[in-house]
């Protein structure tokens, strides 16, 4: 039995990880009161830049950094428009996605068809030899470990740290936070940058580990699913973790159903994550009062300090 379940759980983790990175990044951005709809574009730029860096330097570590930097760079473009030029967040985020899709395709021209082995697994001595639990929890690639560290780190930051409190205050009422002397624009800039960097890592995970290659539009809507995950999670980090694994699971049904001989057209299987996203959105959004309670109150609202 474990022979069957173990590979499923292992692919589940690799499918969930890019969603987890991107959704946690977006969660932090949204908690500061900014909705960045450019996740898909930032992930694609992360994926292509990560892969290109790996291709050029031969170092997967630098590849991850390259993806992170590309995501952050894209996010800073968004931040400049939204925070400095007061552009509205929804169209600017869309512009970021459209731009990212085009630019990543352009950068990736020469990279189509190149393939690598993927990120190496890092086995924790002794612990990785425990049957079943060992390979699952202690013999993974570095980014999977990092994704858990990130999730728990952000959880602590949001709920226990002073800076997290300030971030949430800025997201809930930028005017009040500004009046108290907090630098709203600077805090938001950092939150947007963090969101972009994490989207970049999520994208890089796709091109460095999940399917170690570059293909145009390879994120296939994962950036949008990450945005939906934040709503699903009611802006709570622990539930982002849960949601990412739930959606990772839906993503891999296709892989394993065919191996098990299920006779369903592949296109129908591929529809599942998108349909599931819609169902989940409907279930969560039904309760408007609950959304109002949890959503950052200043989300998408423009900030004009009147001094």
């Amino acid at each position: 039995m474990t022979d069957l379940i173990l590979p499923i759980l292992l692919t589940l983790m690799t499918a969930a990880t890019p969603l987890l990175f991107a959704a946690i990044g977006e969660l932090v951005t949204e908690k500061s009161g900014v909705l960045n709809l450019g996740v898909e574009g930032m992930m694609l730029m992360g994926a292509v830049s990560g892969f290109a860096t790996w291709h050029l330097t031969g170092s997967p570590f630098l590849g991850v950094l390259g993806g992170m930097a590309a995501g952050a760079l894209m996010a800073s473009l968004f931040a400049f428009l939204v925070l400095v030029l007061h552009a509205s967040q929804v169209p600017t985020g869309l512009a970021l996605t459209i731009f990212g899709i085009g630019l990543s395709a352009l950068i990736g021209q020469g990279l189509v068809g190149v393939a690598y082995d993927g990120l190496p697994n890092l086995a924790v001595p002794l612990l990785s030899e425990i049957p079943f639990v060992g390979p699952l929890l202690f013999n993974q690639d570095a980014l999977i470990y990092l994704s858990f560290a990130l999730a728990f780190g952000v959880m602590w930051f949001m709920n226990k740290s002073h800076s997290g409190l300030v971030l949430r205050a800025v997201g809930d009422s930028h005017d009040a936070a500004y009046a108290m002397g907090y630098k709203v624009v600077r805090i938001r800039f950092l939150a947007i940058l963090f969101g972009g960097a994490m989207a970049g890592v999520g994208g890089a995970y796709l091109s460095l580990a999940y399917s170690p290659l570059w293909a145009e539009n390879m994120t296939a809507g994962r950036g949008w699913i990450a945005l939906a995950l934040v709503v699903f999670a009611s802006w709570r980090t622990s539930r982002v973790l849960l949601g990412a694994y739930l959606f990772g699971g839906i993503n891999i049904i296709q892989l394993h159903a065919q191996a098990m001989g299920a006779n369903v057209p592949s296109q129908v299987m591929s529809m599942l994550p998108y349909l599931a996203t819609i169902v989940v959105l409907v279930l969560i959004s039904r309760d408007q009062a609950k959304i109002k309670l949890n959503a950052p109150a200043s989300l998408t609202k423009p900030f004009h300090p009147s001094v």
Binding site: L77, L96, F99, I101, G102, A105, L106, E216
Partner: peptide, 12 residues
């Protein structure tokens, strides 16, 4: 892909 880049830049 240059087309997409142009379109994105125009919107920005």
């Amino acid at each position: 892909a240059v087309t997409g880049v142009f379109q994105g830049m125009l919107l920005f």
